[in-house]
């Protein structure tokens, strides 16, 4: 009897707590799904917001675990920024549901998906099937790897921050404009350096670098994964070796969260081919602290492959 009455009291406590809401803070709390979005938000907002990323630069953003501690962070958030395009579909919905923060539910002002605001690449046509691997119906979601699209994303973030915090809207807009200007200028330099390197074709592990390669007009004739999300097989690696020899491809870029040992056989079979592990996200390697560093690291990897 006593136990029942205690449990009833707990239920009443839960009901009471439901009407309590978090205290307001001067700075907006922003949570991003990946560190690239954290870096872009920092460029836009500076010290005006607190921003933290759930995912780390060393993690594959498709497969991050929905830790309950992330729910706690999202519970305190004013804005959650994600890529969308089904990049985080395996883990973000659980975090949003467990956070019990209606401000950041899908469709609310506190929930921003930026992927759909830029022009997508590799949008599948016709019937989509999981027999084709991890295909994203809305297109390749690794949009932040193009510096120009990253600038467009910055403007989208600035606009939403301005809606949530109107007194600082002009500062957010200015932050975004400064990033767009800087990335546009640097892109000219990166493009020039890539042209000078003589590299025109690159093999990658996954279709992570599609937007970067497209921006700088680099071909991607082979992927180490036989299909998106499917680990390399020995038969497929033999096909890649054949293609690399035929097309005289001299560079393999392995995204930092994949196992680089798969390239050992390719390096043995293709004389002069170089395989480089590259950071494809902020914090993906020591020294990659902001979004510019990601592109700079990729360009340096290409330049080193003359």
């Amino acid at each position: 009897m006593k136990t029942q009455s205690t449990l009833k009291s707990l239920l009443a406590l839960a009901l009471l707590a439901s009407v309590a809401s978090g205290s307001a803070e001067a700075k907006l709390n922003v949570i991003t799904t990946i560190p690239d979005l954290r870096s872009i938000t920092e460029e836009v907002a500076g010290d005006l917001v607190n921003v933290e990323s759930l995912g780390r630069g060393t993690q594959d953003p498709h497969y991050i675990e929905a830790k309950p501690s992330y729910m706690l962070k999202v519970n305190k958030a004013d804005l959650v920024i994600s890529i969308g395009m089904e990049l985080e579909i395996g883990w973000l919905p659980s975090i949003l549901a467990g956070a019990r923060n209606p401000k950041v539910n899908a469709g609310e002002k506190g929930n921003l998906e930026v992927g759909s605001s830029v022009e997508p690449l590799e949008v599948p046509k016709g019937n989509i099937s999981r027999a084709d691997g991890d295909v994203h119906p809305a297109g390749n979601p690794h949009v932040t790897l193009d510096p120009i699209r990253a600038g467009e994303i910055a403007q989208k973030i600035a606009a939403r921050l301005g809606e949530l915090d109107p007194p600082n809207a002009a500062k957010y807009e200015a932050g975004a404009k400064a990033l767009v200007s800087r990335l546009t200028e640097k892109s000219r330099d990166w493009d020039s350096r890539i042209r000078k390197s003589g590299v025109t074709q690159v093999i990658t592990y996954h279709k992570t670098l599609t937007y970067f390669l497209d921006r700088f007009k680099l071909e991607n004739p082979a992927i180490l994964e036989p299909k998106p999300g499917i680990p390399p097989t020995s038969g497929h690696i033999i096909d890649v070796i054949k293609l690399a020899k035929e097309k005289k491809i001299g560079l393999v870029l392995v995204e930092n969260y994949f196992d680089p040992t798969v390239t050992t056989k390719i390096k043995q079979e293709v004389p002069g081919l170089r395989a480089v592990t590259v950071a494809v996200a902020v914090d993906g390697a020591p020294g990659v602290k902001k979004i510019d560093d990601v592109y700079e690291g990729l360009v340096k990897a290409i330049e080193g492959s003359k």
Binding site: A14, L15, A17, S18, A20, S21, G22, N75, A97, R100, N101, P102, N105
Partner: peptide, 9 residues
């Protein structure tokens, strides 16, 4: 519920 702060019923 999806729209109540801190609590899910």
């Amino acid at each position: 519920t999806t729209s109540i702060p801190f609590v899910t019923f």
